[in-house]
């Protein structure tokens, strides 16, 4: 199972947010699982069309994903998926 971690900045809106294991084999599937645990959180990460928001990044095992539109970047069974905010503006 992949382990999903979140930037501390999201905890302002989702105080119970914690590292979460997910079964999904794709990033959209993982995010769907996260949404079930923390309703509304994916709307903070993705825009209306399901794309990664401009100032949000996802790292898989320390590497920033390349496909911000369809989130098709692959990951391993034991990968760490880190959702962070880009430090835009300073």
């Amino acid at each position: 199972m992949a382990l999903v971690k979140f930037t501390y900045a999201l905890k302002r809106f989702f105080p119970k947010l914690a590292d979460t294991k997910a079964n999904g084999k794709t990033l959209p599937a993982v995010l769907q699982e996260i949404e079930a645990s923390y309703p509304g959180v994916t709307k903070y990460v993705l825009d209306d069309q399901g794309r990664l928001r401009q100032h949000v990044n996802i790292f898989i095992d320390g590497v920033m994903i390349k496909d911000r539109t369809k989130l098709s970047d692959p990951f391993q069974e034991n990968s760490e998926i880190y959702i962070m905010q880009a430090l835009s503006g300073g």
Binding site: K43, D48, Q49
Partner: peptide, 22 residues
Amino acid sequence: EEVTAPAYPEGEEVKDGMPATT
């Protein structure tokens, strides 16, 4: 309470090739 903000239906575009998002 946070309510769902207005969102553009899937596939809507601002201009051709530019997806619409609020």
